[in-house]
Design a protein around this nucleic acid. Sequence first.
DNA 1: CTTGATGTAACTGGAACTGTTACATCAGGG
DNA 2: CCCTGATGTAACAGTTCCAGTTACATCAAG
Lengths: 159, 159
Amino acid sequence: MAANSRLTVAVHVLVWMALVRRLGRDLVTSEQAAESVNTNPVVLRRCLGGLRRAGLVEVRHGAGAGWRLARNPDTITLLDIHRAVDGEPLFGLHRAAPNPACPIGAGIRPALQQAYEEAETAARSALARTTVADVLRETLTARPAQAVGDEPSTTHSKD
Amino acid sequence: MAANSRLTVAVHVLVWMALVRRLGRDLVTSEQAAESVNTNPVVLRRCLGGLRRAGLVEVRHGAGAGWRLARNPDTITLLDIHRAVDGEPLFGLHRAAPNPACPIGAGIRPALQQAYEEAETAARSALARTTVADVLRETLTARPAQAVGDEPSTTHSKD
DNA sequence: CTTGATGTAACTGGAACTGTTACATCAGGG
DNA sequence: CCCTGATGTAACAGTTCCAGTTACATCAAG
């Protein structure tokens, strides 16, 4: 199936926050971030909550509240983010338990789990090789035309 | 999220068919296979259809119809099976397109896709290292107590 | 021709995700 | 000390996907 988009949303926010910070502003609201991701602020707050619990971002409450990166973008890997927002396995086992009276049904699950775990470990290692700073660099070099001078979000009327 | 169970079901069927074949019977019906997986025959026919299109199993129609492995179990990898039954990416991109007026929203998708592809490639390589024969061996050695002498499915009253 | 299984469409129930509204909670600033 | 603006979270709606199920046309061996 098409997996969920939580990892994508979380990476997007962090990359956006890295860019915003580079432009001098380091405190952003969920609403501002939602503009770039094109989603609802509550969705972002849920996402940022996971990132906060993982120690990747910090939150400030009260008036003038907002979010800030808690680490340098080049120390945050996609694996960190994935762990923070999505704990589900990549490959699902049987929905209903297989027939225990059949030797295959009785013993296949540990065997499958072992194979799946190797694949997931491999995927995680790959995710660990890319950082938020990497994605930011790739993102900006991909379209040098428009790029970095502009405001990072559509804050035309806002700010 | 928890991914679907198609890969698991497909591997299960093929491992079960490998065992059945080793016991002398090489033509099985979707109903018999469904007993071991503990699911509905139609679900298995859908699954086996994909495996057939991928050349992993053969089907015989008409009276006395059934399914048979088209390759040796030690030449069928989990990657072959995964490709046959599930073409979805492991990591989903944005559900709604991100804001194109934001430099991040405009350029992040190719950057993400590249990172995701590396992770998927790594996972696929791992899946390619395990064969149906491997899973069969692991499955049977996991519970040597009951194991191989019995009938592979619960054909107690049936047969 | 009979028979038994495949191939597939159509539908159901349930689960998961995203989006949305609503509201309690919090802390900074006047 | 209250006012303000944002967070944190519950609750719900709309979609989409998945597995299960029924139904039936199709096929080929005997």
